[in-house]
Every structure is written in structure tokens, then in C-alpha cells.
């Protein structure tokens, strides 16, 4: 059991949940339904939820290896020089996503101090985004456990997997709907940047086709940058983010295989956004 299970239970309880089961009603005949739901492509498109849309950083690493590139993305992570005190929503969310991705990719290999520093950056971001006191307490607990070697790296990876895949998508961030997609955008942009650099390093641009062409993912991020973020985001960040995502969308929709120039383009546009955080 991970620490998050307790937090998720608490979240349910705070939402008015109760463990008391309803009394069962008398058994009735249930109308039979078709074996396969009557569902059209339009229904699918119009009613789909995006909870599971964005791949995780570790999943990206595995796909890279399956594509014949054995580079460990963790070895390509730069020393980010982010302004952690900037609490602006967009920047704090994207920055937190970047740190979350870095943390997951390096959890097994990073020095203890480095990992604690990344945890502190995620914690600071979560507080700026109003993630709540429970998540803060758990992140502090991780830091303390790391300092005293009370938690193993495998266990920590498991905790981070749940944090990224189940806990953060369920957090409400004080009603700010854009926070989760922007955190995911940060993780995905960092992953795309590292992946493109790995592909370039190995001189295998054709391998990038199966890794970087994710038009629906880019569309999902663009929706939050364009429709809801334009007026709120700092102009420079919003413009650069939109510009970068549009370039990535163009490459993702390209029918021909990606070229070395395309990979350079991915590296440039993602680096440009990361440099503004």
C-alpha cells in the first residue's frame, strides 16, 4: 500500500463520502443490453475523457528502448535554472510537471541530495498551485524518509507512479481546472525534449516517428493554452508555449517520416519553453 491510498480515501471522505453501504433493494429483472455497446465514432470523440491520454515519463523511456534506443533519459536531464519563487499558475504548473518527470526518471539513479532538491521543487510547486496540506505533508515525509534512508528507491518510484498517474489528476487545485493539463504538459514537454535529444544522439530520426507523433496529446494541451490561458498566462510564456505546441502539432501530423531537421526543431521549441520557466 502506498501513502497516496490514504490521501485518496481522505479526499473521498472530504467530498462527502461515506463507507456506509446502502441497503440492497429487492432483486429485479434487469433489462438485457447488447453485447457490444451501440457507439459511433462521433460518440467516442465527443464523450471521451482525457484522464489517461498523456503517457508517463517512465512509459516514454520504455518505448524509447523498444524503438532500439538504449539511452537513459535520466542522463540527458539538464540542470534547470528555474525561478522557483515565481508562483504564477502557468509557470508553476508547467515547472512542476518538468520536475515531476525528472524525479520519476532519476528516482533510481540520482544522488540523495539531488532527489531531495527535486522533491522540494515539486512540493513548492504544489503549494503554489494550492494542492493542499495533505499532499504537502506526504512530500515532506518523502524528503525525511530519503534523508534517513527509511524508504527504498523502488518504493519511491511506486509512490511517484501513483502520484503522477492517479493522485495529481484527481486533485482539484482549488477549482483551477487548467492546473492538471498544464502539469501534464510540463512532464510531456520535458519527455519530448529528452527523447528528441536521445534520438539525435543515436542518429535515428526515423525512430522518432513512433515516439513523438502524438497529435491528440498536443491538441489537448493547446486547448488549455489557447482557450483558457491566453488572458491569464504571462504573454511571453503563453506565446512561446502556443508557438512550440503548434510546431509540435505540425510535426505530429506530418505524413512523411521525421527528419534530422525535424528532431532539431523539436529540441529547439521544447527548450525554448523550458528556458522561460
Amino acid at each position: 500500500m502506498t501513502r497516496w491510498i490514504a490521501l485518496m480515501s481522505l479526499l473521498a471522505a472530504c467530498s462527502g463520502g461515506s463507507t456506509e453501504k446502502p441497503k440492497p433493494e429487492p432483486e429485479v429483472v434487469v433489462e438485457p443490453v447488447p453485447e457490444t455497446p451501440e457507439i459511433t465514432p462521433e460518440d467516442l470523440k465527443n464523450s471521451a475523457e482525457n484522464t489517461a491520454l498523456v503517457p508517463s515519463p517512465i512509459e516514454t523511456q520504455r518505448a524509447l528502448e523498444a524503438a532500439g534506443i538504449d539511452t537513459q533519459l535520466a542522463t540527458l536531464i539538464p540542470a534547470h535554472d528555474f525561478d522557483l519563487d515565481n508562483g504564477d499558475l502557468e509557470q508553476a504548473a508547467v515547472r512542476s510537471g518538468v520536475y515531476l518527470a525528472d524525479m520519476m526518471l532519476t528516482v533510481k539513479s540520482a544522488e540523495k541530495d539531488e532527489l531531495i532538491k527535486r522533491l522540494e521543487a515539486v512540493r513548492k510547486g504544489m503549494n503554489q498551485l494550492k494542492g493542499g496540506s495533505d499532499i504537502d505533508a506526504i512530500l515532506v515525509d518523502y524528503q525525511e524518509s530519503l534523508k534517513t534512508d527509511a524508504i527504498g528507491r523502488d518504493e519511491l518510484l511506486k509512490e511517484f507512479d501513483e502520484l503522477s498517474g492517479a493522485v495529481i489528476p484527481e486533485l482539484e487545485f482549488n477549482g483551477q481546472e487548467r492546473v492538471v493539463p498544464l502539469i501534464e504538459a510540463g512532464s510531456w514537454l520535458e519527455g519530448a525534449n529528452l527523447m528528441a535529444r536521445a534520438v539525435k544522439q543515436k542518429g535515428k530520426p526515423d525512430a522518432a516517428d513512433g515516439l513523438l507523433k502524438q497529435p491528440q496529446v498536443v491538441d489537448y494541451f493547446l486547448k488549455y493554452v489557447k482557450e483558457e490561458g491566453a488572458e491569464k498566462a504571462p504573454v511571453q510564456v503563453a506565446e512561446k508555449l502556443e508557438e512550440s505546441l503548434n510546431t509540435l502539432k505540425g510535426l505530429a501530423e506530418k505524413k512523411e517520416p521525421l527528419t534530422e531537421a525535424d528532431i532539431d526543431s523539436v529540441i529547439k521549441v521544447t527548450s525554448d519553453v523550458l528556458a522561460l520557466l
Partner: peptide, 27 residues
């Protein structure tokens, strides 16, 4: 087996709920 996503909801009988997912070739 790594975790991509875990989510929960309430569903009415005979109804569906659908989720868009990106899946990588090779995984």
C-alpha cells in the same frame, strides 16, 4: 507493470464511459 492511470467513476446500467489513451508501439 508500470502505472499509466487509475481512475474511478459511477456508471449507470447499460451505459458506457470512455477514455482517450495514447499507447506507444512496442510497449
Amino acid at each position: 507493470w508500470g502505472v499509466r492511470t487509475m481512475t474511478k467513476t459511477t456508471l449507470a446500467p447499460g451505459k458506457t464511459r470512455n477514455y482517450l489513451v495514447t499507447l506507444y508501439a512496442g510497449n
